[in-house]
Nucleic acid binder design. Structure first.
Lengths: 340, 340
DNA sequence: ACATGGATGACAAGCGATTGCCAAAAATTG
DNA sequence: CAATTTTTGGCAATCGCTTGTCATCCATGT
């Protein structure tokens, strides 16, 4: 492929070269390429042949300049190294590529400011945004949503179209599981204060434990990283709880390590339930009981929602909310409550 | 910030609006913004003020169209969900952002074809490319390198500027470690056939084991995923080796799981050494002895090399090769050879 | 006070595509 | 076969910015 690359490397063929070779006007080439059906079948074939021969690739810059669209979607995640997000990233990437879009990945480093900044700086260069676990305030988010098309993941609906992972219901499953194992003193280990998911999980935890008349504790907030696990483990152990429901797997895995160091056995002395079922949850020690969800699918759905908004002609339901189901995956980090 | 957003949402301010507000020509605005020093201090301030007031962001499209540069670099990785790469991605992202560039992330899904395709399709939209663990043949790579600026990571030098992680020397360290533990029958568990790193590691393994007169085996190739670990573990166990040096941590972690299932104890019956020290290597069971390297730094260095090529005026050494040091991190997956 | 040179900033020509408009050609109809 | 409709494809304006060219202006040296 690409054998007759005789032009000097720097010179890319333009639409004019193609038009000349095919013996038509540039506008015809443009239409043949981006709006087939508007051009004669034979002519189009001739044009496509010429384009292929020249190894012509339209300049997305020029295309964007005149059409106003960039065929690009920016995906903002708080932490690129958090395995939770790369399933989202991959899901989004798949769906975007299928639709001929390019993905712009931005790591906002858990900072609302960087997030707002990226949103602002890229508003010209992206047709739309996917905000995964946005750290923005409701007001900031509303403002951003007013300026450009965006879809959020794990964020309050109503402000913008959103894909939520139904962790509250997973919390209930987790509590049921723990109660059935005899636990009555349960601790919630909280994630970032600005995380909407965290708030929802905490809320579900409170409601459910109150109803079941369980003794509860809570510690946190902690950064959602394994390195915060030590502090979280110490705090949780100090409460006297026999089981913990942890904001996410990263934190839970960090706790596992610390508890082991301290000689607190999991699950004999303390049961741990994580959330997300990320890469690593199945091979840590002990393997983590966790609330699993179709994260990659969440990424795909978010993109679909965004694209149907960007290209209303393709139809699409235009729904503003998608809820992803979750289920508890029981592994070895939960067990019967210790006898007192 | 951005309080007087009175324009209708769709209409972005252009350079003309800024020029008008500041009372100068558009060209002056352009120069003031992208080439300060070419414009009077006071005038520039006035322009900057006007720009800020209008919340003006230059269109990267238009800018790219006339300048020929896109201020964008594409980073191609074989598998976005492989933790090894996200350190590279993050390193690259940091360095790119610092230089005012945008990162385009592409997951080539371990496919040489997708890689070549992306390289081709994006040649107009990116100023340069970073190819992490390229799966291209030497010929394809040479062709690509002739068409556009690119830097490879973990790929033969000479064809293009490269950042290599010095795993061969790490292999030697690993062998030394295993020999000192009494192992004499060692198996190399190979990664993808198209991986240059794999070839280099295998070569180093062979040379060193020959010199030390060790009994060696090799199995593979295997896909670098935990799911391939089962097959790899079975094959390795079958050889009768007492220790394995595994292409990467992903595969090694997969093997760990399988060996456990089969009742083969690690490290009592079999020692395992991984490579890369990825996320998870420290908390798997048992924690993995592995060859660690500054992966994020590799990403940063690759970007630096690329940028100094794209912007020769900024100087930069223009070196074509950077070697990242590695060292063995001993954890619990290696131990004394079993007594026969 | 005059010539000189360096800053400064206005003008206008592109960059490579898209797209509205319209004329020519082809297909359809009565 | 003429009249009408539908297709087809060319012209040229336009998108927002960069940049080469050149006139103007001011500070400097003599």
């Amino acid at each position: 492929m690409a054998e007759l690359q005789l032009q000097s490397p720097g010179k890319q063929p333009t639409i004019r070269d193609v038009a000349e070779l095919a013996g038509v006007a540039t506008s015809t080439v443009s239409r043949a390429l981006s709006n087939p059906g508007r051009v004669n079948h034979v002519t189009r074939e001739r044009i496509e042949e010429a384009a292929a021969q020249l190894n012509y690739i339209p300049s997305s810059q020029a295309r964007g300049l005149s059409s106003g669209r960039t065929q690009t979607v920016a995906v903002l995640v708080p932490d690129i190294t958090n395995p939770f997000y790369f399933d989202i990233i991959r899901g989004a990437q798949h769906q975007l590529k299928a639709a001929g879009y390019t993905q712009l990945l931005v790591d906002t480093e858990e900072s609302a400011e960087m997030e707002a900044d990226a949103l602002q700086k890229m508003r010209r260069s992206a047709d739309g945004f996917i905000l995964a676990a946005s750290r923005l305030t409701d007001a900031q988010l509303a403002e951003a949503a007013a300026q450009q098309p965006l879809v959020t993941i794990n964020r309050a609906p109503a402000i913008a179209p959103t894909v939520v992972i139904d962790t509250p219901s997973a919390i209930i499953q987790a509590l049921e599981h723990l109660v059935s194992l005899g636990h009555t003193r349960i601790c919630f280990v909280g994630g970032p204060a600005t995380s909407w998911s965290n708030a929802k999980r905490w809320q579900a935890f409170q409601e459910e434990t109150t109803e079941r008349k369980l003794t509860t504790f809570s510690v946190g907030p902690f950064a959602p990283k394994t390195t915060s696990g030590a502090a979280a483990a110490d705090a949780a152990a100090h409460t006297g709880a026999t089981a913990c429901i942890v904001f996410n797997d990263l934190l839970a895995i960090g706790m596992l390590q610390r508890l082991r160091e301290r000689g607190i056995r999991v699950p004999e002395d303390m049961s741990i339930v994580g959330c997300d079922d990320i890469f690593g949850a199945d091979f840590c020690n002990p393997p983590l009981t966790t609330m699993a969800s179709p994260i990659e699918q969440a990424g795909r759905v978010a993109v679909s929602m965004l694209l149907s908004r960007l290209n209303p002609q393709y139809g699409g339901t235009g729904r503003r909310l998608a809820v992803m189901p979750t289920h508890l995956t029981v592994r070895a980090s939960t067990g019967a409550a210790p006898v007192r």
